[in-house]
Design a protein around this nucleic acid. Structure first.
Lengths: 163, 163
DNA sequence: TCGCCGCGTTTGCAATTGCAAGCACCGCGG
DNA sequence: CCGCGGTGCTTGCAATTGCAAACGCGGCGA
């Protein structure tokens, strides 16, 4: 409870790295850190400094904030309704669009919470994303794909299940 | 190259501390770090780690992010949209959920933009790529409804505009 | 005049970061 | 067969963090 997130951050990094399909050395080079150190960080043997964390975030092309939060370094009250506030404040969205977006957001939060509770009960060592409880149907996500592929760097490599 | 910021962060901390009218030792105690170390940090002689920075931020009652930005640990490159920022920063969402939500948001913005252009009879030349032209179809939105309508008649409705 | 307390700072020192070098393993081509 | 390049991991070691102890300075009460 006392924020043993130090290990968590490593797992998170490794997760993101593998999801990006790059090797440990590649990420190390991209982040400007040494390979062995990154290895130790990913396994929770070392607690990377803020600079290193920032470099890694850049190398992973993910938000630095996300990484800091994972590391428990930004855990200051993060209002979940921040997203809702931002959506409501966005004049680039119509009323209906805002409502839909908020609904989706809240739906996602419910799903995530359910997943977390389940994982906390059933400690699954590694097997993930195989058939994880898909609260959103496949067709829903499939329908999203063509629209979703707008702002990807090109490293989409989403597991295209051909089965 | 990354050094000048180190001094900057120290000055910033000292500034904030003096503005809060608390002594170095008080802040050190509140932040849970030693007084001499804080002294060195404020004068740029030491480069505090992320943890210490976070502690100091707490002790100062200021945003951790502001401090990280000052330290050059979070690039100022503010994402194009506050909504996207909020989504990315929300740890209550999985990576995939965040990405999906962002994609939907961007699609909505495209849609809205298209509508706006239509209302304005000013025929400005633009690409006629039909595929990209239609951001989200009506059927897509319809498919969204059942998932989105989780808390439709909740208490989310806000009409209290503060001006 | 003392003594005491607060301020910020300086000084060694244990603990840690982060790295260069090297290890073990594996797939592939000579 | 052995080498070559790829993966991640282990091992010392310099550099750094962060702290406890102590210092100089100034104000205040006895």
């Amino acid at each position: 409870m006392a924020l043993p997130k130090v290990g968590s951050i490593g797992e998170y990094i490794r997760e993101q790295r593998q999801q990006a399909k790059i090797s440990l050395r590649q990420l190390a080079a991209a982040a400007g850190v040494s390979n062995p150190y990154l290895s130790q960080v990913e396994r929770g043997l070392r607690k990377p400094s803020a600079e290193i964390l920032n470099q890694i975030a850049k190398g992973l092309r993910i938000s630095s904030q996300a990484l800091y939060v994972q590391a428990g370094l930004i855990e200051d009250r993060e209002p979940p309704s921040d997203v809702i506030t931002a959506i409501r404040a966005d004049t680039n969205l119509s009323e209906r669009q805002s409502q839909v977006l908020i609904d989706i957001y809240e739906s996602f939060r419910k799903e995530k919470r359910a997943e977390d509770e389940q994982t906390s009960q059933n400690a699954r060592p590694r097997h993930d994303s195989a058939s994880d409880d898909e609260p959103l149907s496949e067709e829903f996500l499939a329908a999203l794909e063509p629209y979703a592929a707008t702002s990807r760097n090109g490293n989409v490599t989403q597991e295209t299940k051909e089965g």
